[in-house]
Structures are given as structure tokens and as C-alpha cells.
Nucleic acid binder design. Sequence first.
DNA 1: CGGCATCCCATAGGATACTG
DNA 2: CAGTATCCTATGGGATGCCG
Lengths: 122, 122
Amino acid sequence: MRKPLDPDMFDPVCPSELVPIRVGDKWAGLIIQCLEGGPRRFSELRIPLRTVTPKVLTASLRSLERDGFVLRTALPGPVRHVEYRLTPLGRSLLPLLATARAWAETHLDELLTAREAADRAR
Amino acid sequence: MRKPLDPDMFDPVCPSELVPIRVGDKWAGLIIQCLEGGPRRFSELRIPLRTVTPKVLTASLRSLERDGFVLRTALPGPVRHVEYRLTPLGRSLLPLLATARAWAETHLDELLTAREAADRAR
DNA sequence: CGGCATCCCATAGGATACTG
DNA sequence: CAGTATCCTATGGGATGCCG
């Protein structure tokens, strides 16, 4: 049984781009949280990540793999099947990502308000 | 009495660039931690931040100000004097930055080891 | 299915020099 | 002192199309 992913995180209405906290590159944080519930395949990752292109997703996964956050496993068989899973090191980032999410939930609108006011003032 | 800053944070031997956690732009996290101990002037910030150029420091401070993390105050008087201080919103990032630092202290060498191994394998 | 090859562009950020 | 002004480049990331 796989843990469902928080839908808000990928909601274009609340783009993570506005959150001034990033883990790795643009997609790494989301990827790691996608993998929290267990291994995922390449195309499974593309679904919640909607707008990510294969090239960029590959690059991000390779980077995560290189730094020991993610383990890539190509399963044998007639059909091609590749799995990505978190390593313990990758899992060590989960509390941080949860904290970042919590920060965003309680403070992001303050940021937005301040930005709006600053932009209106000039 | 101003709280001394952690020297390791700015040590080129442990460049924060390797830490896959960023708050805002390249310098924002360091700036915020520089301001933790109280208001600082422009040129005071340049000292721990050693390699930052004035242009980039200005840009980062403007961005932090725009988003309500930092308050800029130009004090009156014959000599020019500008102070930067954290707002409550800016302070709300401090626990996050502390967590990031803690992560780096306990896991950064794992990352480095994994990266080294991955680079040697290819 | 799980990518890679190619092209392209915007932006971040650094170097250097100058100023009110 | 606290910035601006210019210029320059690296790279992150997107678009598109092809492949075993």
C-alpha cells in the first residue's frame, strides 16, 4: 500500500518556485517527496511532476543518484523497467523538506503580501 | 554585545555551495545568519561574506527586503549609514537555517563520499 | 518505456570601474 | 560609505525530436 502524495505540493496555484527554500535543483525536492512513499518508475515520477521534461528529470535524477540520495535500479526482463528509490541519505532530507513545507504553509502568504506591498510602493 | 558568528559557515574549506539546501539566492542564507546577531551595515556584511561583490550583495539585500525578510534603514546624519536588520519573517527562517546547518554537519561527508565514489565509477 | 541529442534562451552571478 | 553602471559568461532549464 503506497502512501498517497500531498496534492497541494504539485498544485500550480501554490508553485514551489515561490518558496525561497530549495533542496538541490529545481525538481529534487519534489522528486524526493515523490519517492517518500516507496520506489517509483521514471514515468510514474512524470505524472505528479506534470511539467518536467524527460531530459530535465533525467538530469535531476542523475544528480540525486550521484550524491547518494537516490538509487537507480534497472530490473531485468523483456520490458524495460527502471526504479528509483531513496537511500537512507535521501531519507535524511525528508524532515528538512517537511519543515520547509511547514514554513511555506505558515509564512508564504506573509512573503507574498510583503512582496506585493513592495512592488506597489515602487 | 553582539553574538559572534560561526566562523565555519564562511570557511572556504566547507563551502555552502556543496550543501544541497538553499534559502533564497546564493547569499541570502548567509546574510540572514549574519543578521541574526543584530543589525549590520553594508560594509559589515561584506567582511564575513568575503567574496561577495557589492553589486551582488545589493541585489540579494534588495530581494530580501522585497520579500519582507530584511528591513533597510538609512540613518540620518552627515556620514552615510545604512543598517540592515531581520524582520520577524526573516527570523522565521532561522530555525530552518539551523536545521540545514545541522544536516550539513552530520551528512555532508556522506554526500561527498557518495559523489566521489560515483565519479570514480565512471 | 526510459531515456539521449540538439538547440535555445533567460537568468544568476562575477569582474571591473565609477559616484554622490 | 553605500552603493551604480557596464559588461560578460556559465549554466540551469525548457522545447523538440529521435532511439533501442
